[in-house]
Computed example of a mutant assay.
Amino acid sequence: MDIRIDDLSGADTRALIAHHHAQMHAQTPAESVHALDIDALRDPGITVWSAWLDGRVAGVAALTQLDAERGELKSFRTADEYLGRGVARALLRRIIADARGRGLTSLWLETGSDDGFVPARALYASEGFVECGPFGGYIDDPLSTFMTRAL
């Protein structure tokens, strides 16, 4: 698997992010969707990685630095045809390594709380994330699960 920083200029990566954004809006009321679209992910404070298998984009994930010590995981998505092949775990581990390299001391995330997000929450928990309350600008929302991990 080739994991690299992505400038979001490629059609395949943009299509996967657009699919992710559309799926989040199809599953969740708009006020509870925190997925970032392409324009938001192009913010210079956000780093996006893409994972590639067999010359095809297999997944994407992003990290935004909240402050000097904390980072937030954003826009994790594995392409449907690559589910169960370790793509999300590989991306997560790459981001954790990068965050440590930046000197961050913790990572934070928001994900869905319904059954469709069980695999995501299980992945994060298996990599040391624990549930917590809202952080940053988030508010308590029954459709959100917040998690954090010390680095």
Rank of each mutant, 00 (worst) to 15 (best):
Y124E: 11
G133K: 02
R94H: 10
E127Y: 01
D2E: 13
D39V: 06
I96E: 15
R70N: 12
T28N: 07
L73H: 03
A68S: 14
Q23A: 10
Q27I: 03
W49R: 01
L36G: 14
E110L: 03
D98P: 00
V130T: 14
A40R: 07
L109P: 09
L91Q: 05
V57Q: 10
K74R: 14
P29E: 06
D140W: 06
M1G: 09
I46L: 05
R149D: 08
A30G: 00
E72V: 01
T64V: 13
H34I: 12
D67Q: 09
D54S: 08
D12R: 07
P119C: 05
A62E: 04
G84T: 10
R121V: 11
A58H: 03
A22H: 02
D115H: 14
M1V: 10
R4C: 08
S144Q: 05
G128R: 12
I46C: 11
I95K: 00
M24H: 03
T145D: 01
V33Q: 00
R121D: 11
S32P: 11
I38N: 03
L151K: 09
L66W: 11
D80P: 00
R4T: 10
T111N: 06
A61G: 15
E69R: 13
S75L: 11
G55K: 04
H20F: 10
A58M: 05
H25P: 05
T111Y: 14
A79V: 07
T148S: 14
D80A: 14
G136D: 13
G136F: 07
A51F: 00
V33K: 01
M147W: 07
E110Y: 09
E110Q: 12
S50E: 05
H20N: 06
G10N: 09
R77Y: 03
H34R: 07
T111Q: 12
V60F: 00
Y124N: 01
H21N: 01
R149I: 00
P134F: 02
A40K: 08
E81D: 15
D39Q: 11
A122D: 14
A68K: 14
I95F: 09
S126H: 11
L41E: 02
L41M: 05
D43V: 03
